[in-house]
């Protein structure tokens, strides 16, 4: 596809059951009737980064019409994102998106994210906990507490006030994508470090309310002690800088 208006990066690890539907949903929203699609958008390139899946995620994505980038081994969420951004940095587009392959992010929220991006933000996050959300998204108490701590650290250390910094539903300007394509670290939760990196680079970060579906397939990628470890690791990197 030549010069799409939007490019949507979808990192996927073993998501063969949901990735096809997610791609179709994004295509329908972004290039559909004018009243639902983002302003001026006529075409969207969906880029699925298959992070070393053992199932047929890549085939399912290709059938659904996505550009597929396959990592030969599983490198983690941050690495998959960075590869997607590297690809996107070499293309022409107006606004770049990131969303999950498991169907948690609802494509009809895309126009709101793109609109915020068009009105000057370099990085727009879809927030599940925004004050304007009709119904706050239910998460476990531990996760909620961890998100609060991260929010606080980001606000104090980096001057970014966000209600849902762990959100993986983003819209981005070109400077933001180019920055991340070089500097985003590789691990789980490293999208949080992305916020830190973007804030330090002086990019404008904004938040819009989104609704989030409960996941349609798969398991939360990380739980329990591992989740705690990843939060501690990420907090360290946010508060004193450096790599994750």
């Amino acid at each position: 596809m030549d010069n799409p208006d939007l490019i949507a990066v979808i990192p996927a690890y073993n998501e063969e059951n949901t990735v096809g539907a997610v791609i179709a949903e994004v295509q329908r929203t972004c290039s559909g009737p004018a009243e639902v699609r983002p302003a001026e958008a006529r075409s969207v390139e969906v880029v699925v980064v298959d992070d070393g899946s053992a199932d047929s995620t890549a085939e399912a994505a290709a059938v659904a019409g996505a550009t597929v980038l396959r990592l030969p081994v599983n490198l983690g969420y941050g690495a998959a994102l960075r590869l997607g951004f590297r690809y996107a940095a070499g293309r022409q587009w107006d606004c770049a998106l990131v969303l999950d392959a498991d169907g948690q992010h609802i494509a009809t929220d895309i126009p709101a994210l793109v609109a915020a991006c068009h009105s000057g933000a370099d990085l727009v996050l879809g927030s599940r906990f925004h004050p304007d959300c009709a119904v706050p998204y239910p998460v476990s108490r531990i996760r909620r507490a961890a998100i609060r701590v991260v929010s606080r650290v980001l606000r104090h250390r980096r001057g970014v006030a966000l209600t849902d910094p762990t959100s993986g539903f983003w819209a981005m300007s070109r400077p933001c994508v180019e920055l991340f394509s070089r500097q985003l670290p590789a691990g789980y939760l490293d999208n949080l470090l992305g916020l830190s990196i973007a804030a330090r680079a002086g990019l404008a970060i904004a938040e819009v309310p989104v609704t989030m579906a409960s996941r349609q397939g798969g398991q939360p990628s990380t739980q329990g002690a591992r989740l705690v470890f990843h939060y501690l690791r990420t907090l360290l990197a946010i508060s004193i800088g450096g790599r994750s």
């Binding site: 550009t67 980038l69 396959r70 990592l71 590869l83 790599r243």
Partner: peptide, 15 residues
């Protein structure tokens, strides 16, 4: 870090 960059390169070349 180096392995990651190598993997990115492999994925982009394969595409």
């Amino acid at each position: 870090q180096r392995i990651q960059i190598l993997m990115e390169e492999v994925a982009l070349l394969r595409r």
